[in-house]
Amino acid sequence: MSGEQARLAKQPRASLGQRALGLLVRWEMVLFLLLIGVFVLNSNLSPVFLTQRNLLNATFSFMERAIMALPMMLIIISGEIDISVAGIIALSATAMGLASEAGASIPVMILVALATGLAAGLLNAFIVLRFRVPSIAVTIGSMSLFRGVSWAILGNQAISGYPRELAQLGQGTVGNTMIPMPLVMFACLALVFGIVLHRTGIGRTIFAIGNNATATQFSGIPVDRYKAVLFALNGLVAGFAAVLLTSRILSTRPNIAMAWELEVVTLVVLGGVAITGGKGSIIGVVLSIFVTGYLRFGLSLINVPSQVIGIITGLLLVGAIILPGVFEHYSNKLILGKQLKPLEPQRE
């Protein structure tokens, strides 16, 4: 370790130009180029793709998952994971449906969904932190539990008959512009999450926990409390996603948001967040959301079956892991010249 530090200390500080170059060859830049690539591809495939109306409308199809990616990003950076998100969405939507059938007003329905999501998140947090069980194991179990409760309540019935005004949230646009309401909500949330993650002590602490929870604990930070808040937040936001989803499709079945947990994790990891924790950026995640969203949308416009889209996103995900390493290697070479030895993959 000390040899490593000595080696780093000897390196000259990168000049401004070199740092700009470093910025250019980051993973976020690759994602940005990918996004442009997706746009070029799509507009060649379909003449209507690149219209303002279409680009905005397309976002309706993936904003719930986009919103879910934000708290998931924080959880993964902190070194944990939550596989139960889609189950929480199903459970919250079911609770919301029951509230609607009981004649609740729209604000009450929303509160019920949020409270259900929060409670589910707190249950995850309690089990993970109280019994010290790895979160991946706990949330695989609670995934079945949450969705199972939803099945138990609804059976093969669907709840519909939501008030028409509810649709304004998930289907509406802002004022008389064409900007979708969910897109605006996502933008606001992404801004808040980005600022918290990158510009506050809370964000620094989350990175620290993900890098070394024990060291963070010993430096006096209540690690468990942070993690509890993150799981609870994930549940709360899943409740919110359930509201948006219900408002968009105006019906609730126990199988809604099926298999979304893995899609949401994919969004986060494709955005350059390390699955082992401690590393990631909001820009990367936001870019990966739009790359994946528009790719899926564009390919489905030309009737590419969802299974084939699955292959493409799968390979993209693997590429997302292998390529940044390659990129980092070459960008370090570019920026720092020959002083730096070839980057060895980090080993534990």
Binding site: I140, G141, S142, M143, S144, L145, F146, R147, G148, V149, W151, A152, L154, G155, N156, P254
Partner: peptide, 11 residues
């Protein structure tokens, strides 16, 4: 319809 939930709880 109850089976998934019970399975989850048992797990």
């Amino acid at each position: 319809f109850f089976q998934l939930g019970i399975q989850g709880a048992v797990i």
